[in-house]
């Protein structure tokens, strides 16, 4: 989020005009890709068992979305509309291959845990959704800002869900023991007082329920977002 703050300090530059800043800040709250636009749920839920995975996933999505949005936006007048989906898929797939190879090279253990979900960034609805809804009709500058906003909106939901699932499910944050250790023989911290990890939290369904609760909180704060069934 600090990057967003930095950008607001430089209003003279046209790239960071008021309209463009809105492109970045809107998706963080009232137009969040996950909780409001309902895009990119698939990968968001599956990799939120640990904060580290969620972080790398967010970075990958940021990379693919930012570059992809700029590329599509530059090509937007050359792409025949009948085959635009295929063109978009090829752009995303190439970027995802780059990300996948980079992750496998520099953070191999994370790459292993993310497994197919890196590949699934290709069909992540956030990417295609933003290409269709924004990059096809806007200049590269605003498209880049839109990509930033949506990736940060995606990232904070991911990190929030992962934070609670890892903290309550494994008692750790980024692999560091917060509540102590539950290994028999060398117990310390809260576990000596009978605290137990909630194994439910590391099961897939809890991700859905946590996102449901985030949606609940968000919509009770902003009544305009409430749907009628």
């Amino acid at each position: 989020m600090s990057e967003v703050a930095e950008k607001t300090k430089a209003p003279k530059e046209p790239l960071f005009s008021k309209k463009n800043r809105k492109l970045v800040t809107d998706p963080l709250t009232d137009n969040n890709p996950i909780t409001i636009q309902v895009l990119g749920i698939c990968s968001a839920l599956a990799i939120t068992v640990q904060v580290e995975q969620a972080f790398w996933m967010s970075v990958s999505v940021l990379f693919v979305l930012a570059l992809g949005n700029v590329i599509i936006s530059m090509l937007r007048n050359m792409i025949p509309s009948r085959i635009r989906i295929i063109v978009q898929l090829v752009v995303v797939a190439s970027l995802v291959i780059i990300v996948d190879q980079l992750l496998a090279a520099f953070v191999p253990d994370v790459s292993e845990k993310l497994s197919v979900f890196v590949g699934l960034i290709i069909t992540n609805c956030i990417i295609m959704g933003r290409f269709e809804a924004f990059a096809m009709g806007n200049k590269p500058g605003p498209s880049f800002m839109d990509a930033l906003g949506n990736s940060f909106g995606y990232a904070w939901i991911l990190l929030a869900v992962a934070f609670f699932r890892e903290l309550l499910g494994s008692g750790t944050f980024w692999g560091i023991e917060i509540f102590g250790s539950s290994i028999p023989g060398s117990k310390w911290g809260l576990y000596t007082m009978g605290y137990e990890n909630n194994n439910m939290m590391i099961l897939p369904p809890m991700a859905l329920i946590i996102v449901g609760i985030i949606i609940w909180i968000q919509r009770s704060r902003n009544k305009e977002l409430i749907e009628d069934h």
């Binding site: 909780t35 309902v38 369904p205 809890m206 991700a207 859905l208 329920i209 996102v211 449901g212 609760i213 949606i215 609940w216 909180i217 968000q218 919509r219 009770s220 009544k223 977002l225 409430i226 749907e227 009628d228 069934h229």
Partner: peptide
């Protein structure tokens, strides 16, 4: 009200 639509669907799926 705030859970209607998307929210309750998430929780049901869970």
């Amino acid at each position: 009200a705030p859970l209607r639509g998307l929210g309750i669907t998430f929780i049901l799926t869970g």
